[in-house]
Design a protein around this nucleic acid. Sequence first.
DNA 1: TTTTTTTACGCAATCGTTCCCGGTAACGAT
DNA 2: ATCGTTACCGGGAACGATTGCGTAAAAAAA
Lengths: 352, 352
Amino acid sequence: MKFEAVTIKDIAKALGLSTSTVSRALRDSYEISPETKKLVLEYAEKINYHPNPIALSLKERRSRSIGVIVCEIANSFFSQTINGIESIANNNGYNVIISQSRESADRELLNLQYLTSRSVDGLIISVSTETKDLSYFRELHDRGMPIVFFDRIVDEIETHKVIVDNFKGAYDATTHLIKCGYKRIATVCNAAVLSIAKERLAGYKAALTDNGMEINEALIKYCQHGGMITDEVEEAVQELFKARQKPDAIFASADKLTTGCLRILKAKGLSVPDDIGLIGFSNSELTELLDPPLSIIKQPAFEMGEIATSLLLQLIESKRPVTDFETRVLSTELLIRESTKKQKQKAKEIAS
Amino acid sequence: MKFEAVTIKDIAKALGLSTSTVSRALRDSYEISPETKKLVLEYAEKINYHPNPIALSLKERRSRSIGVIVCEIANSFFSQTINGIESIANNNGYNVIISQSRESADRELLNLQYLTSRSVDGLIISVSTETKDLSYFRELHDRGMPIVFFDRIVDEIETHKVIVDNFKGAYDATTHLIKCGYKRIATVCNAAVLSIAKERLAGYKAALTDNGMEINEALIKYCQHGGMITDEVEEAVQELFKARQKPDAIFASADKLTTGCLRILKAKGLSVPDDIGLIGFSNSELTELLDPPLSIIKQPAFEMGEIATSLLLQLIESKRPVTDFETRVLSTELLIRESTKKQKQKAKEIAS
DNA sequence: TTTTTTTACGCAATCGTTCCCGGTAACGAT
DNA sequence: ATCGTTACCGGGAACGATTGCGTAAAAAAA
């Protein structure tokens, strides 16, 4: 049941050399004669030798691999980000180890410990909704582990970060709803502790006040598990409709929440956009095929992954400790489709 | 830039013991006195000692981790499968390393080499569309590496396999189209080398002949890259409509192809299901929210992941070489929604 | 020819852990 | 007093690779 590979010793024995000589020949050291090198190289090729990365990791204390922690890969935004991460990482000879926190702080910590104990050279992280205790991150960071946060970042730890302008994204989306003539605009957002939730909520509120509209706390609902639990979204929407002032539009501030809201609204027999408008953050490729096609705020996920990885590799390969960190802020894209097109609006369009 | 953890040596030094004693105390060996054990255990706890898995992997030639290779994690079917895999693996103390082949045989091989060199204890694989050369899989398998194939399996290698009854799934879907009154039923499928493509195509053909319909090769289109390239699906659909006999329904035999077809059909201004019916394999959670809600064949992805992992762990933990392999065949689920409901059919329903 | 330099290689330590051998007490039995 | 147990513990070799240092032989310089 074991699986044994050919080692440097096998080569040494076969060729009557020492392991050091073989090792040096393989790494093209100047102290090895051309003939010996040729001999070793050819034999290594012949028996299909590959250096054992585990032994290397143990010795070098590095693994040429980077760890990624996201809440779930099934989310389009994250899978796209991962593709961006892999593209840069692989081009630079790094491997990517992906792990999911499933919005649980415990699993996040477990994954974190697993990855670090596996000697990943760096980490790219979007924290879970539950994450409160930052001590482990901090310890890691203090001990010199290169970390880049993206999407859901933590302010308290100073390192490179990659995000989008969540405030503006939410502001634009809300403003769009207002322009469409919606009056009682609700929002369904992630747990309030999350950076993205805070920023998007702030954008939503600012858009309302800037347009002379009141902020009604009854129209703001939080989903602690980021929509991982369907009931949670349903509950949020139901509560929204239990209120005295029923909403006529919803701004959903995360991928799962956006499609989650649509699902519930349709189940309730409400017509989008006529009974209720809907817009939200989403990176799903299916949103334009939905009924109705969803107006969305889209993040440059692939690019975010690329940038995060470049920054991480910079940290990893830097000779001396980096103290000058940057936060890259990218732009979101507002895609206007049917789900925010009120009848009135439609009529106007036809008339014009 | 280094990251050093506490080792067994640190404990030994601090406590004035030898590393062997510490190691044994940690593993609760009978040769260590209760007091020493307590001492070691407490100190280990205090300084937050965790055994170095890399050193362990090197020594034990196993890593308590399993490797997964799928073509892409953004695909709902695969991300659901991975969740199933992780649930079982984690419960048994195994970690999961995910990698994507992106439908490229080269990347698949690279990932394979990476995973094995990382001493994964076993592999769970769904092969890429490009995979032709099985020699590396065979070599691995012959040398005792536990492998479980799922979804896209290879007949030539004898090991555990987990699939659905693709023939029946396709047969049922096609039969459903026929019952709905569609006459010229086309199919868009994956590269013909893929097991799932073959089986589903066979099911499609059988349904046609069983219902006295002709098999028209012009109505069968292949997408070599499994729909990873959008143009490819578009091309397939366009060709379908260039034919003398235009199709009035499409059976798409994979996730990306199903939504891909819908996208193209809508772009062409065709109405589904009136101008053309559409049904396909899909595990996306959004299909019922699409316009129109898609009739689909759904696979028990999570369960497949669970079963594949159980089988793999069985192989890994088996004392003697296993020669008795099984192929688990699960059932698909046919979900009938609007995309296959012809006007005629609808009228009938209303009348009844 | 002798001395110095260069060339080309081997020895052994190292990374963190386990485990096979030993070794040394203490203690009861002979 | 001697032997045999039992209970504990340490030394050191592995696992696969790299690397500083030492050194024999060959080449160059004297």
